[in-house]
Simulated scan of single mutants.
Amino acid sequence: MGKVVLIIGAGDAIGSAIMRAFANKDYVVCGARRGGEKLDPLVEELRGAGKQAYGFSCDARKEDEVEALFADIETNIGPLDCVVFNIGANVPMTILDTSAKKFMKIWEMATFAGFLAGREAARVMTKRGHGSIIFTGATASMRGAAGFGAFASAKGALRNMVQSLAREMGPQNIHVAHVVIDAAVDTEWIKGMLPDYEERKANDGVVNPDDLAQNYVMLHEQPRSAWTFEMDVRPWAEKW
């Protein structure tokens, strides 16, 4: 059995790309999302290529489901060597249009779920004295743009929590990292949002999920004498 990696928020673009990147390095990959059956084609694809892959259903906002997910993997698949938290929750809306219910849901997805994932990963890894916990951030982790108040609030809070976790876990030989994706990622949603999408894509102006995913593997495999806490990623032509 190879080393086991869990991607929470294994969506169709970034999350799936991260699963493929680790599988291609012969890690055992586990993906979790609310509708776990949506992972079946990817799991079959990876298994068909001789890789070890598993899909799970989990609402990462629910403490009991997250605890059960970790227990299932640790008991039936193997000890987790790396956990990636990749839930986005990017829902543009003005403050005036943001209901308390929407604000709370975005916070639950981006912040509270990140806390649950980080806590459970830390609990199992501290027993063994090694591992990596990697969180996906966004431009909103660093600054709040107009129309993204709830998202920026949640992502900024996640980043601060991850900093705290990194300072707690580093002395215990557990690498905690935060990846700031400061650009549009090539997804179906972005394809419909950007009027110049085709031109940007042809010119490497949007983030390729497979290229992005290589950074997660690199962060996990970094030697501990040169750990990165925060990595910001953007295409060569992106303004920042």
Rank of each mutant, 00 (worst) to 15 (best):
R143E: 09
A152S: 13
E120H: 09
S153D: 11
G131F: 06
I134N: 02
M142R: 11
A145D: 08
H130M: 07
G149Q: 01
T139Q: 15
G137R: 01
G144W: 07
H130A: 14
A154H: 02
F135I: 09
S141P: 08
V124P: 06
T136D: 04
R143G: 06
A150K: 04
R128V: 08
M125S: 07
G129E: 13
A140Y: 11
S132D: 10
G131H: 12
G131A: 10
M125L: 15
G129H: 10
S132E: 14
H130P: 04
G131C: 10
T126A: 12
T126W: 01
G149P: 01
G149E: 01
S153G: 15
I133P: 02
G147S: 03
A150I: 05
A152K: 00
A150T: 09
A138N: 10
T136H: 05
G137D: 08
A121I: 08
F151H: 00
G131I: 03
F135Q: 06
V124A: 12
G118A: 02
S132Q: 14
R143W: 05
K127T: 14
A154F: 01
A122K: 07
A150G: 09
K127Y: 06
T139S: 15
T126H: 09
T139K: 15
F148W: 10
A138S: 15
K127N: 11
G118L: 03
R143Y: 07
A146R: 08
I134P: 00
A121Q: 06
A138H: 03
G147V: 12
A150E: 06
R123A: 14
A146L: 13
K127C: 11
G118Q: 00
A146I: 14
V124R: 11
M142Y: 13
A121K: 02
I133Y: 06
M142W: 11
G131T: 08
G137A: 05
A122T: 05
R123T: 12
S153M: 09
I133H: 03
S141F: 09
I134E: 00
R123M: 13
G129N: 09
T136Q: 09
A146P: 09
M125K: 12
V124S: 14
A138M: 11
A122D: 03
T139I: 12
T136W: 05
G131M: 05
T139Y: 13
T126K: 13
S153Y: 04
R128D: 11
I133K: 03
K127W: 06
I133E: 01
R119Q: 13
A121H: 10
A154W: 00
F135K: 01
M142S: 14
G131V: 09
A122N: 04
A121W: 02
G137P: 02
A121L: 05
S141Q: 15
G131R: 07
A150V: 09
T126V: 15
V124Y: 13
S132W: 12
A150P: 07
A122E: 04
V124L: 13
T139F: 14
G147R: 04
A122W: 02
T136Y: 04
F151A: 00
G118H: 04
